[in-house]
Simulated scan of single mutants.
Amino acid sequence: MNVENVLLGIAVHQLFWEHLPHWGRWFNRLLGMLPKPLQALYEQWRCPYCAGFWIGLSVHAATGRWVFDGFAQLPSFWGAAGVPLGWFMDALVFATLCKLGALVVHAIGLPALKGLQAKETFLAQKAKAN
């Protein structure tokens, strides 16, 4: 399994749907300048599975690497349909792993954030006491 592609896909999803919209107005202004159909696609693809499929296809096209090498060599009876079918199945697996990765990041993120807040509160109270 090619973990690098999956990590890149999770990072791309996190960047475009979890972080950039909150890093100032410039990104949201840029989105507002897009044609309405592209704005609708951006809103509909918030799901890491939906976006993950297209991110998976893009990452595969950019890197030439498969998530699972087995999809590169499908049985010969698929003929000319084998290559597009392999890309499609690879992107589906990529999307599933992207969604799983996003769920893991969120599951880890909340307890980590609460722990950080508790630590900061503790240190602030300790500083006041001294």
Results as ranks from 00 to 15, higher is better:
Q73E: 13
L97R: 02
L103V: 00
L57F: 12
A81M: 11
A62Q: 02
F68S: 09
W54D: 07
T96V: 05
D90G: 05
A118T: 04
H60C: 06
L97P: 02
G101F: 00
A81P: 02
L74I: 02
K114Q: 12
T63S: 15
R65Q: 14
G79T: 07
A95F: 10
L97F: 02
F68P: 03
T96F: 13
G82V: 01
W66V: 10
V59Y: 07
D69F: 01
C98W: 03
G70Q: 09
G70A: 11
S58K: 06
A127D: 11
G82M: 04
A95D: 10
G101P: 02
A51Y: 08
I108C: 05
D90E: 04
A72S: 13
A118E: 11
A107E: 02
P75W: 05
C98N: 14
L85M: 10
K126G: 00
C98S: 15
K99A: 11
L113P: 01
A107M: 00
G86L: 05
L74G: 08
Q73I: 07
A112L: 15
M89W: 11
A124H: 12
D90L: 01
V104L: 12
A118C: 04
C98E: 10
K119T: 09
G79D: 10
L110S: 09
L116A: 14
G115P: 05
A118W: 03
A51N: 05
Q117W: 08
H60Q: 15
G56F: 07
F94E: 02
F122Q: 14
W78G: 02
A62E: 01
K128V: 10
G109R: 03
L74M: 13
F71A: 10
P84V: 03
M89C: 13
L57R: 13
P111Y: 04
L103P: 01
F122T: 08
H60M: 12
L85H: 07
V83R: 12
Q73N: 15
G86E: 05
V67F: 01
L74H: 03
G101Y: 01
F68R: 12
W54T: 06
L92P: 03
S76A: 15
A80D: 13
